[in-house]
Simulated scan of single mutants.
Amino acid sequence: MNLTKLRYVVAVDRQGAISAAARALNVTQSAVTKAVADVEQDVGAALFERHARGVTATAEGRAFIDRAARILADVDQLVADVDHGRQTREQVLRIGVSPSSMEGLMSRAIWALVGAHPEVRIHLRGAPFETALQLFRQGDLDALIGPSRPLMAEAGVRCDPLPPLNALFFVRRGHPLAGKPVTGEDLAGLPLIVPEPSGPYAEPIQHLVQAGEVDPMRRLHIMPSFTMAAGVIERSEAVGVVVDSYAQSRHFRSRFEILDFPQQTSLPMAVAYRSGGQRGRALGWFLKAVQEFPPTLGAEMP
Rank of each mutant, 00 (worst) to 15 (best):
A21D: 05
G212D: 01
V232A: 09
D186W: 04
V114W: 08
R137W: 05
I110M: 08
A73N: 07
W285N: 13
S98L: 04
A69P: 00
F64Q: 00
E196Y: 05
N26E: 12
I205F: 08
A69K: 02
V194W: 05
R53G: 10
L124A: 05
V9L: 09
R235N: 15
R172Q: 10
G212R: 04
A229N: 00
V114H: 11
T227H: 14
D81A: 15
D140R: 14
V214L: 12
A17W: 06
P150G: 05
I193F: 07
D160F: 08
A153S: 14
A143P: 04
L105K: 12
T88R: 15
M106Y: 00
M223P: 01
R281P: 08
G16V: 03
T88V: 14
G16N: 04
G212V: 02
M269S: 01
V271N: 07
E257Y: 09
H123P: 03
M152A: 15
D13F: 09
G298E: 04
A11K: 05
L220H: 03
F226R: 12
Q91F: 01
H221K: 12
Q291I: 04
A45Q: 14
R53D: 11
G189E: 00
N26C: 15
V55N: 02
R94V: 01
A238Y: 01
G231F: 00
T4L: 13
T131G: 09
G96F: 03
P176E: 06
V171M: 03
R125A: 11
E90R: 08
I122C: 04
M152R: 15
Y273L: 10
A167E: 13
A31D: 00
G96M: 02
A52E: 14
V271C: 09
H251C: 06
V120I: 15
D74I: 11
P294L: 02
A80D: 12
G156A: 13
P294D: 01
I233E: 00
G115E: 08
V214Y: 04
A59H: 11
G212Y: 02
D76A: 11
R70W: 07
W285K: 11
R137G: 08
L141T: 04
R158V: 10
E119I: 04
D81C: 07
Q291C: 08
S254E: 15
V55R: 03
V43F: 06
F170D: 01
T33S: 15
K34V: 13
P204V: 05
I145R: 07
Q278C: 09
I205Y: 06
L162T: 02
R253P: 00
L267K: 03
E257Q: 15
G146W: 04
G126F: 07
K288G: 09
E292W: 05
D83N: 13
A127G: 02
G16T: 03
A272I: 06
Y246Q: 14
R125N: 10
R158H: 13
K34A: 14
T58C: 02
D66P: 01
D74N: 11
V39Y: 06
G54A: 05
R50V: 11
E300S: 10
G212H: 03
